[in-house]
C-alpha cells in the first residue's frame, strides 16, 4: 500500500463522511416570538415540517404561541385549517390577535378521523398551516403527518399531552409548554441545531 492519496482527492470523491450536519436553510416562517426565533435553527418554524407542542393541560398558552403565525398567514390570505380543536375558537379573541377568520377553516372530526383529516389537509398543498389535536397518535401516524407536510409544503402543528415527551417523535421541532405560574417553553428537539439548555419565558399578554 504505497500509493499516497492526497486528502483533497478523497474529500472531493465524497468517500469520507465528515460528520457535519447539513446546513439548515434559514426559513421565513418566524414564530412571532423574538426570543423563540433566536434559538431555533431555522429562525422560526421549520418549513414544511411537523412541529409538536406538548402541553400539561389545555389552555396554558398554546394558542398564544401560534396565533402570531396564524395572523401573518391569514392576513396574506392563505388558508389555515384547525382540526378537532378541544374548544371552540373564540372569534372575538382571535381577531384581537389579528387573525382574519375568513381564512380559518374548522374541521370537526371524530377521534378516528382526526389523523386522516389532518393528513388530507397537509397533503392537499392548499393549506398554509394545519393545527390538529389528535388523541391517539403513535410514531407511525406522526411520521405520516411529517411526510404529508413535506409533500404539501405546509406547516403542521400537533398539540399533545406532555406525557408523550418520553416517546421518540419524527417531528422536526418539539416544544414543551410549562404551565403558569412560570409559563415558559422548553425546546426538546430541533432538527439542524443543538437543543438550547435554557427555557424561554413566554410573556403573557397584558390585559
Amino acid at each position: 500500500m504505497s500509493a499516497v492519496v492526497s486528502l483533497t482527492t478523497l474529500l472531493d470523491a465524497r468517500q469520507v463522511w465528515r460528520g457535519r450536519a447539513p446546513e439548515v436553510p434559514v426559513g421565513d416562517q418566524p414564530t412571532g416570538w423574538r426570543a423563540l426565533d433566536a434559538v431555533l435553527p431555522a429562525g422560526g418554524w421549520p418549513e414544511s415540517s411537523l412541529s409538536e407542542i406538548l402541553l400539561p393541560a389545555d389552555g396554558v398558552g398554546e394558542l398564544c404561541l401560534v396565533l402570531p403565525t396564524l395572523a401573518r398567514l391569514t392576513q396574506a390570505q392563505r388558508p389555515v385549517v384547525i382540526v378537532a380543536p378541544p374548544y371552540a375558537p373564540c372569534v372575538a379573541g382571535w381577531r384581537q390577535h389579528g387573525v382574519d377568520m375568513r381564512w380559518v377553516e374548522i374541521v370537526d372530526a371524530a377521534e378516528k378521523d382526526v389523523l386522516w383529516a389532518t393528513e388530507q389537509c397537509l397533503r392537499s398543498g392548499s393549506c398554509a398551516a394545519v393545527l390538529a389535536w389528535p388523541h391517539h397518535a403513535d410514531d407511525r401516524a406522526l411520521r405520516r403527518l411529517q411526510v404529508a407536510a413535506v409533500s404539501g409544503q405546509a406547516l403542521a402543528f400537533v398539540f399533545r399531552d406532555r406525557s408523550h415527551l418520553s416517546n421518540a417523535s419524527p417531528a422536526a421541532l418539539r416544544l414543551e409548554l410549562e404551565a403558569p405560574p412560570r409559563p415558559q417553553i422548553w425546546v426538546r428537539k430541533c432538527r439542524g441545531g443543538a437543543v438550547p439548555a435554557q427555557a424561554i419565558s413566554l410573556p403573557r399578554v397584558v390585559h
Binding site: A88, R95, V104, E105, I106, D108, W116, A117
Partner: peptide, 12 residues
C-alpha cells in the same frame, strides 16, 4: 367523509 356540517368557518 365527516359529514356536511363538519367543515365550516366562524364569523362574528
Amino acid at each position: 367523509r365527516l359529514g356536511d356540517g363538519a367543515v365550516y368557518r366562524l364569523g362574528s
